[in-house]
Nucleic acid binder design. Structure first.
Length: 262
DNA sequence: TGTGATGTTGAATG
DNA sequence: GCATTCAACATCAC
Protein backbone atom coordinates (compact mmCIF):
# COMPACT_ATOMS: atom_id res chain seq x y z
CA UNK A 1 0.00 0.00 0.00
CA UNK A 2 2.40 2.57 1.10
CA UNK A 3 2.94 5.53 -1.13
CA UNK A 4 2.96 9.09 0.16
CA UNK A 5 -0.73 9.33 1.13
CA UNK A 6 -0.72 5.92 2.80
CA UNK A 7 2.42 6.73 4.77
CA UNK A 8 0.71 9.92 5.81
CA UNK A 9 -2.15 7.80 7.15
CA UNK A 10 0.39 5.64 9.00
CA UNK A 11 1.88 8.79 10.50
CA UNK A 12 -1.51 9.88 11.82
CA UNK A 13 -2.11 6.44 13.25
CA UNK A 14 1.32 6.43 14.87
CA UNK A 15 0.81 9.90 16.34
CA UNK A 16 -2.57 8.95 17.78
CA UNK A 17 -1.36 5.73 19.37
CA UNK A 18 2.35 5.78 20.16
CA UNK A 19 3.31 9.32 21.15
CA UNK A 20 3.97 10.34 24.74
CA UNK A 21 3.96 6.82 26.07
CA UNK A 22 6.85 5.11 27.75
CA UNK A 23 8.11 2.08 25.84
CA UNK A 24 8.47 -0.64 28.45
CA UNK A 25 9.42 -3.46 26.12
CA UNK A 26 10.75 -3.82 22.57
CA UNK A 27 10.10 -7.10 20.80
CA UNK A 28 12.14 -8.02 17.75
CA UNK A 29 10.66 -11.18 16.28
CA UNK A 30 12.64 -10.87 13.05
CA UNK A 31 15.67 -8.63 12.71
CA UNK A 32 15.76 -8.88 8.92
CA UNK A 33 14.16 -5.46 8.53
CA UNK A 34 16.53 -3.76 10.98
CA UNK A 35 19.19 -2.12 8.85
CA UNK A 36 21.92 -0.13 10.54
CA UNK A 37 21.41 -1.51 14.02
CA UNK A 38 21.59 -4.92 15.67
CA UNK A 39 18.64 -6.48 17.41
CA UNK A 40 20.42 -6.15 20.75
CA UNK A 41 21.26 -2.47 20.28
CA UNK A 42 17.81 -1.60 18.97
CA UNK A 43 16.16 -3.08 22.04
CA UNK A 44 18.62 -1.39 24.34
CA UNK A 45 18.32 2.02 22.71
CA UNK A 46 14.52 2.07 22.73
CA UNK A 47 13.55 0.46 26.00
CA UNK A 48 12.30 3.07 28.47
CA UNK A 49 12.29 5.76 25.80
CA UNK A 50 9.26 7.73 24.60
CA UNK A 51 8.26 8.78 21.09
CA UNK A 52 7.55 12.51 21.15
CA UNK A 53 7.00 13.43 17.50
CA UNK A 54 7.10 12.15 13.94
CA UNK A 55 8.06 13.54 10.56
CA UNK A 56 7.08 12.16 7.17
CA UNK A 57 9.18 12.73 4.09
CA UNK A 58 8.14 10.91 0.97
CA UNK A 59 7.46 7.33 1.93
CA UNK A 60 9.61 7.52 5.05
CA UNK A 61 8.36 8.08 8.56
CA UNK A 62 10.91 9.34 11.09
CA UNK A 63 9.81 9.03 14.70
CA UNK A 64 11.53 11.26 17.20
CA UNK A 65 12.53 9.93 20.60
CA UNK A 66 12.89 11.90 23.80
CA UNK A 67 16.66 11.91 23.33
CA UNK A 68 16.30 13.63 19.90
CA UNK A 69 17.32 10.50 18.09
CA UNK A 70 14.98 9.01 15.48
CA UNK A 71 13.62 5.68 14.38
CA UNK A 72 13.08 5.37 10.64
CA UNK A 73 10.14 3.36 9.38
CA UNK A 74 10.05 2.56 5.70
CA UNK A 75 7.12 0.31 4.90
CA UNK A 76 8.41 -1.40 1.77
CA UNK A 77 5.51 -2.98 -0.06
CA UNK A 78 3.63 -4.52 2.82
CA UNK A 79 4.49 -2.70 6.05
CA UNK A 80 1.69 -1.62 8.38
CA UNK A 81 1.10 -0.58 11.99
CA UNK A 82 -1.35 -2.24 14.32
CA UNK A 83 -2.08 -0.96 17.81
CA UNK A 84 -3.71 -3.53 20.05
CA UNK A 85 -4.18 -4.62 23.63
CA UNK A 86 -5.22 -8.25 23.35
CA UNK A 87 -2.50 -10.66 22.21
CA UNK A 88 -5.11 -12.30 20.00
CA UNK A 89 -5.07 -9.16 17.86
CA UNK A 90 -1.37 -9.40 17.12
CA UNK A 91 -0.87 -9.19 13.36
CA UNK A 92 0.23 -12.39 11.71
CA UNK A 93 3.52 -11.11 10.34
CA UNK A 94 4.56 -8.83 13.15
CA UNK A 95 8.33 -8.32 12.94
CA UNK A 96 8.86 -5.60 15.54
CA UNK A 97 6.66 -4.45 18.41
CA UNK A 98 6.71 -1.77 21.08
CA UNK A 99 4.86 -2.43 24.31
CA UNK A 100 3.78 0.68 26.15
CA UNK A 101 3.13 1.45 29.77
CA UNK A 102 -0.64 1.47 29.21
CA UNK A 103 -0.60 -2.22 28.24
CA UNK A 104 -1.12 -1.61 24.52
CA UNK A 105 1.32 -2.72 21.84
CA UNK A 106 2.21 -1.10 18.55
CA UNK A 107 3.14 -3.87 16.15
CA UNK A 108 4.94 -3.46 12.84
CA UNK A 109 3.43 -6.00 10.49
CA UNK A 110 5.25 -6.89 7.28
CA UNK A 111 4.64 -10.14 5.38
CA UNK A 112 7.23 -9.45 2.69
CA UNK A 113 10.23 -8.17 4.51
CA UNK A 114 11.01 -5.24 2.25
CA UNK A 115 10.47 -2.73 5.05
CA UNK A 116 13.45 -1.01 6.63
CA UNK A 117 13.79 0.18 10.18
CA UNK A 118 16.84 2.19 11.17
CA UNK A 119 18.09 3.97 14.24
CA UNK A 120 19.24 7.52 13.50
CA UNK A 121 21.21 9.76 15.80
CA UNK A 122 21.34 12.81 13.55
CA UNK A 123 18.38 13.10 11.21
CA UNK A 124 19.62 16.02 9.10
CA UNK A 125 22.90 14.33 8.42
CA UNK A 126 21.14 11.05 7.68
CA UNK A 127 18.73 12.51 5.13
CA UNK A 128 21.54 14.43 3.47
CA UNK A 129 23.31 11.13 2.90
CA UNK A 130 20.50 9.08 1.42
CA UNK A 131 19.29 9.86 -2.07
CA UNK A 132 15.96 11.39 -1.12
CA UNK A 133 14.46 14.33 -2.95
CA UNK A 134 11.97 16.88 -1.69
CA UNK A 135 8.57 15.68 -0.60
CA UNK A 136 6.18 15.48 -3.54
CA UNK A 137 3.46 17.28 -1.60
CA UNK A 138 5.54 20.37 -0.91
CA UNK A 139 8.04 20.59 -3.77
CA UNK A 140 7.78 23.87 -5.70
CA UNK A 141 6.91 24.05 -9.38
CA UNK A 142 10.24 25.70 -10.18
CA UNK A 143 12.22 22.94 -8.51
CA UNK A 144 10.09 20.28 -10.16
CA UNK A 145 10.54 21.75 -13.65
CA UNK A 146 14.29 22.09 -13.15
CA UNK A 147 14.51 18.46 -12.14
CA UNK A 148 12.63 17.31 -15.23
CA UNK A 149 14.66 19.44 -17.60
CA UNK A 150 16.46 17.36 -20.20
CA UNK A 151 15.70 14.01 -18.57
CA UNK A 152 15.78 11.16 -21.05
CA UNK A 153 13.92 8.74 -18.84
CA UNK A 154 10.24 7.96 -19.14
CA UNK A 155 7.74 10.15 -17.33
CA UNK A 156 6.85 7.26 -15.09
CA UNK A 157 10.49 6.45 -14.40
CA UNK A 158 11.08 10.05 -13.39
CA UNK A 159 8.11 10.21 -11.06
CA UNK A 160 9.14 6.98 -9.35
CA UNK A 161 12.73 8.05 -8.70
CA UNK A 162 12.83 9.02 -5.05
CA UNK A 163 16.07 10.97 -5.31
CA UNK A 164 14.30 13.45 -7.60
CA UNK A 165 11.15 13.75 -5.54
CA UNK A 166 9.98 11.64 -2.66
CA UNK A 167 6.62 9.99 -2.31
CA UNK A 168 5.16 9.01 -5.69
CA UNK A 169 4.79 5.27 -6.21
CA UNK A 170 3.53 3.00 -8.94
CA UNK A 171 -0.19 3.64 -8.64
CA UNK A 172 -0.06 7.39 -8.22
CA UNK A 173 2.40 7.67 -11.11
CA UNK A 174 -0.17 5.96 -13.36
CA UNK A 175 -2.90 8.23 -12.06
CA UNK A 176 -0.85 11.37 -12.76
CA UNK A 177 -0.16 10.21 -16.33
CA UNK A 178 -3.80 9.34 -16.87
CA UNK A 179 -5.13 12.66 -15.68
CA UNK A 180 -2.68 14.60 -17.84
CA UNK A 181 -3.42 12.42 -20.89
CA UNK A 182 0.28 11.61 -21.22
CA UNK A 183 1.44 8.07 -21.89
CA UNK A 184 3.58 6.84 -18.98
CA UNK A 185 6.31 5.64 -21.37
CA UNK A 186 6.70 9.10 -22.92
CA UNK A 187 10.17 10.59 -22.64
CA UNK A 188 10.41 13.58 -20.31
CA UNK A 189 12.55 15.60 -22.73
CA UNK A 190 9.93 15.25 -25.48
CA UNK A 191 7.19 16.95 -23.49
CA UNK A 192 6.20 20.58 -23.88
CA UNK A 193 6.52 23.02 -21.01
CA UNK A 194 2.75 23.08 -20.81
CA UNK A 195 2.71 19.30 -20.32
CA UNK A 196 5.45 19.39 -17.69
CA UNK A 197 3.46 21.97 -15.75
CA UNK A 198 0.33 19.86 -16.14
CA UNK A 199 2.15 16.89 -14.59
CA UNK A 200 3.17 19.03 -11.63
CA UNK A 201 -0.37 20.32 -11.14
CA UNK A 202 -1.90 16.86 -11.45
CA UNK A 203 0.57 15.42 -8.97
CA UNK A 204 -0.25 18.14 -6.46
CA UNK A 205 -3.97 17.79 -6.93
CA UNK A 206 -4.01 13.98 -6.76
CA UNK A 207 -1.79 13.74 -3.71
CA UNK A 208 -3.67 16.53 -2.00
CA UNK A 209 -7.00 14.82 -2.57
CA UNK A 210 -5.67 11.48 -1.42
CA UNK A 211 -4.11 12.92 1.71
CA UNK A 212 -6.79 15.34 2.80
CA UNK A 213 -10.06 14.14 1.32
CA UNK A 214 -9.89 10.41 0.68
CA UNK A 215 -8.41 8.42 3.54
CA UNK A 216 -9.19 5.10 1.87
CA UNK A 217 -8.87 3.91 -1.69
CA UNK A 218 -12.60 3.43 -1.93
CA UNK A 219 -13.09 7.16 -1.33
CA UNK A 220 -11.22 8.18 -4.46
CA UNK A 221 -13.18 10.05 -7.10
CA UNK A 222 -14.98 7.84 -9.60
CA UNK A 223 -13.21 9.39 -12.57
CA UNK A 224 -9.76 8.33 -11.40
CA UNK A 225 -8.01 5.59 -13.33
CA UNK A 226 -7.90 3.80 -10.01
CA UNK A 227 -11.51 2.81 -10.37
CA UNK A 228 -10.64 0.91 -13.50
CA UNK A 229 -7.49 -0.45 -11.99
CA UNK A 230 -6.67 -4.15 -12.18
CA UNK A 231 -8.89 -4.82 -15.11
CA UNK A 232 -8.53 -4.16 -18.77
CA UNK A 233 -11.58 -2.93 -20.59
CA UNK A 234 -13.25 0.13 -21.96
CA UNK A 235 -13.29 3.30 -19.94
CA UNK A 236 -16.34 5.34 -20.86
CA UNK A 237 -15.42 7.89 -23.51
CA UNK A 238 -11.69 7.40 -23.01
CA UNK A 239 -10.79 4.15 -24.69
CA UNK A 240 -9.24 0.86 -23.73
CA UNK A 241 -7.36 0.37 -20.49
CA UNK A 242 -4.17 -1.55 -21.22
CA UNK A 243 -1.43 -3.06 -19.12
CA UNK A 244 2.26 -2.86 -19.96
CA UNK A 245 5.63 -2.77 -18.22
CA UNK A 246 7.34 0.58 -17.87
CA UNK A 247 10.68 0.69 -16.05
CA UNK A 248 9.91 -2.82 -14.91
CA UNK A 249 6.67 -1.89 -13.20
CA UNK A 250 3.15 -2.92 -14.04
CA UNK A 251 1.53 0.08 -15.68
CA UNK A 252 -2.10 0.84 -16.46
CA UNK A 253 -2.91 3.36 -19.14
CA UNK A 254 -5.71 4.25 -21.48
CA UNK A 255 -4.83 3.57 -25.09
CA UNK A 256 -5.56 6.38 -27.51
CA UNK A 257 -6.39 8.72 -24.65
CA UNK A 258 -2.85 9.17 -23.34
CA UNK A 259 -0.42 10.61 -25.87
CA UNK A 260 2.89 8.80 -26.39
CA UNK A 261 5.81 11.18 -27.03
CA UNK A 262 8.88 9.15 -27.77
C1' DT B 1 2.05 -24.96 -9.59
C1' DG B 2 3.45 -20.77 -11.23
C1' DT B 3 3.19 -15.93 -11.31
C1' DG B 4 3.30 -11.43 -9.85
C1' DA B 5 2.85 -7.81 -6.20
C1' DT B 6 1.48 -0.45 -4.15
C1' DG B 7 9.46 -0.45 -3.08
C1' DT B 8 14.47 0.14 -2.96
C1' DT B 9 19.08 -0.86 -4.18
C1' DG B 10 23.40 -1.89 -6.15
C1' DA B 11 25.55 -3.71 -10.15
C1' DA B 12 25.78 -3.27 -15.01
C1' DT B 13 25.50 -0.54 -19.02
C1' DG B 14 25.67 3.50 -22.05
C1' DG C 1 31.30 10.82 -12.95
C1' DC C 2 26.47 10.88 -14.49
C1' DA C 3 21.99 8.90 -16.18
C1' DT C 4 19.46 4.96 -16.75
C1' DT C 5 18.01 0.05 -16.58
C1' DC C 6 17.31 -4.27 -14.39
C1' DA C 7 17.65 -8.24 -11.43
C1' DA C 8 17.35 -9.35 -6.65
C1' DC C 9 15.33 -9.17 -2.27
C1' DA C 10 11.03 -12.60 0.86
C1' DT C 11 6.64 -14.12 1.18
C1' DC C 12 1.98 -14.89 0.14
C1' DA C 13 -2.39 -14.78 -2.47
C1' DC C 14 -4.66 -15.88 -6.58
Amino acid sequence: MPELPEVNTFKKYFDETALQQKIIEVIVADDKILRNVSKHDFIEKLTNRTFINSIRRGKYLFSELDNQHYVQFHFGMTGDFKYYEDAADQPRHERIAFRFADGFTLGFDCPRKFARICYIENLEEYIANIPLGEDALTISEDTFLKLMEGKKSTVKGFLLTQKYLAGVGNLYADEICFQTKIHPASKVNKLSLRQLKAIYQAMKSILHQAVYEAPYYKDYPDDWLWKAWRKEGTLAGKGEVKIMKVVGRTTYYCEGYQELLD
